[in-house]
Design a protein around this nucleic acid. Structure first.
Lengths: 218, 218
DNA sequence: AATTGATTGAAACATTTGTTTGAAACGATC
DNA sequence: GATCGTTTCAAACAAATGTTTCAATCAATT
């Protein structure tokens, strides 16, 4: 029952299954291929997980937990300026998405699940994503003028996350649109800096506009 | 051969197949289900398309072409200000993505193809997406200071598209994060206005910063 | 009305796939 | 070393699925 990181048949199957589900999808991946890649017998899937679907769910949840653990948010204290927090959040988010080149399959697996929600999706959203979303919102609350509606807060958070996620979900398209040499230079640091700068510029403008509006009215 | 919009068995199969591929994916969709939904015989798929895969490719290409035709960019003339062009581009993009509530399957199908590229992906990227990308870049060139690098132009374009696409690729997550009542109010107009405002605020700040920098240097 | 070509229909085929089974191998415990 | 629970293995099962076949049907043309 303990799914610790031992090199046991169980986790070998989980890892192989995750990679294959990520690349080919649930239906295109056969239990036989998974077991062959994991060096296990066909019956091992049913022995350890009951059936193929429960193996899938466990693989997805495991992949997302791994993604979160892989890159942790920086330690902030009460004096950390919110601009720095936002920069750190975005950088960490990119680390999780683009991570080591051998780990992108985990993000692919999770994104695939989001577009084909099963039981794993709601669980991940509630237990893993929501806390991160709350953190991002608390940062934005410090950066946006007081009185900003919850809705605008949400949309702004979505704008940030959307910019980051794009580089994963549209990767084949991006490769088709920009030069291969340029694409090769897209790394976490560069992309994070771009998104951070663009977002902060927009937030600054909103804050300035609000201040001007308040000043003009009085 | 002519795939015109007649209510022929061929296009009925294409439409049914598109919807089912979009919801369940390629492998999970059976030829039998497609034909039943289209009111056709099982053999019709092989008769009209040769095999299941060529039916899929044709359905994807058709869906994306339909998406483009559904919402056309406004007519601009030489005097149209670039800010208005950007607003129009973003609004049209959202129309295409979120379109009529009965047509979202087309976007789903295309996004699915992007994450599982087949032969259809490269074709769509080259013949359909690239022209749109060029238009967006030409608009941004008018809004960003002279001397802005191609790379920054690209990243800015990706930031815009990423913000829009997010509402489609992460829909189940968004539903989980915000109140159902609030989500119900997300429509094309509201989202387009948010993305446009945020982006223009950022672009204005960059332009102002560049002007200030140039002024200070002289 | 006959003919010709395109389309549809029901059934069958060959393969693949998830799952099960029951015996063998293994490992720790007494 | 015998025993008991756990794990592995090869083989088989049953269901589903893409594809094919060939006769029936239809529609237009002569």
């Amino acid at each position: 029952m303990a799914d610790n990181d031992l090199d046991t048949t169980r986790v070998r199957i989980l890892e192989s299954a995750g990679q294959m589900f990520a690349e080919r999808g649930f239906e295109s991946t056969t239990v036989r291929d998974i077991c062959q890649a994991a060096g296990a017998n066909v019956a091992a899937v049913n022995y350890y997980f009951g059936d193929k679907e429960r193996l899938y769910i466990e693989a997805v949840v495991r992949a997302h937990r791994w993604r979160l653990d892989q890159a942790q948010l920086p330690d902030w204290n009460a004096t950390t300026p919110p601009r720095e927090k936002l920069a750190g959040f975005i950088h960490t988010f990119f680390e999780r998405i683009l991570g080591g080149k051998d780990d992108t399959w985990r993000t692919r697996l999770v994104m695939r699940e989001f577009m084909n929600p099963t039981a794993a999706c709601a669980e991940i959203a509630q237990s893993n994503i929501r806390p991160q979303f709350e953190i991002l919102q608390s940062i934005l609350r410090e950066l946006l003028p007081q009185g900003t509606s919850d809705e605008e807060l949400h949309l702004t958070a979505f704008s940030i996350v959307g910019q980051c996620l794009f580089y994963h979900v549209a990767e084949p398209i991006i490769c088709n649109l920009v030069d291969g040499a340029e694409f090769a230079t897209y790394d976490v640091d560069k992309l994070a800096e771009h998104v951070t700068k663009l977002t902060l510029a927009a937030l600054d403008a909103k804050a300035a506009h609000a201040a001007r509006g308040a000043g003009a009215r009085r």
